[in-house]
Design a protein around this nucleic acid. Sequence first.
DNA 1: ATTGTTGCAAATATTTTGCATTGTG
DNA 2: CACAATGCAAAATATTTGCAACAAT
Lengths: 130, 130
Amino acid sequence: MQRYSRQRESIIEYLRSTNEHPTAETVYQHVRVQLPKVSLGTVYRNLSQLASAGEILRFPSIDGVDHFDADTASHYHFICNTCGRIQDVPMAPLSDITRLAGAGIDGEITGHAVTFYGHCSDCIHTAKEQ
Amino acid sequence: MQRYSRQRESIIEYLRSTNEHPTAETVYQHVRVQLPKVSLGTVYRNLSQLASAGEILRFPSIDGVDHFDADTASHYHFICNTCGRIQDVPMAPLSDITRLAGAGIDGEITGHAVTFYGHCSDCIHTAKEQ
DNA sequence: ATTGTTGCAAATATTTTGCATTGTG
DNA sequence: CACAATGCAAAATATTTGCAACAAT
């Protein structure tokens, strides 16, 4: 059975408070403010456990580091190729897409992810200034 | 300027011959058959270079390892959550999706990726047998 | 001759894990 | 009291990089 722990509570709390899609390292830095003795290993252990339980989402990124998200409802992401920042994309999930794809593949689809790439406005502006 | 090398040639050739979306390690194992003295570092160096040049695609996967694909045309992937195998999804790219998403985000979209998750038929059958 | 590329090894970076100890139920 | 969870450190994995030798132009 899963038991309560301050560490896990603090991790979930932080994840729910942000829409920044933080990495384990970032979660660690924030949890450390409240619980200075927390270890990075504990953060990783809890993030993995929560992701396996479906309470949070874990997803890989082109930056080579996994990111985490407390919002488990279907939604899409926009990743800036310059700075790596990940934004939520406010659009309705594509309802028909699973049926469309399912016709052609050899297996059973249970979910999907859509990721947009490009440059966020911050990076576009910074580039122009130079 | 980029110069010719047998190693890079062999890497591209292998990538073009397969639709298995191999990892660097898998590419290495195949290239090694032709060029036994090739090093894993060289494979990584070339894969990174080719991906930067847009000649191949690099994409992260939930298995924590990057995969590579010589097919740079827009197409989608289906990843089996059980065995990790990646299949191409034979469906037309969603033409309208960039415009839909672009309306809501803070930046400029240059591309997108769609990944479906589920279980491939091999893994479904294997599970039933047990 | 110039300089891109390689093989090798060492260095980074990310994530997982073993273990003795602590904390929850 | 049982055993889940922790902190810490070491290990495992994936990828990058410094460098001297080699090869393409």
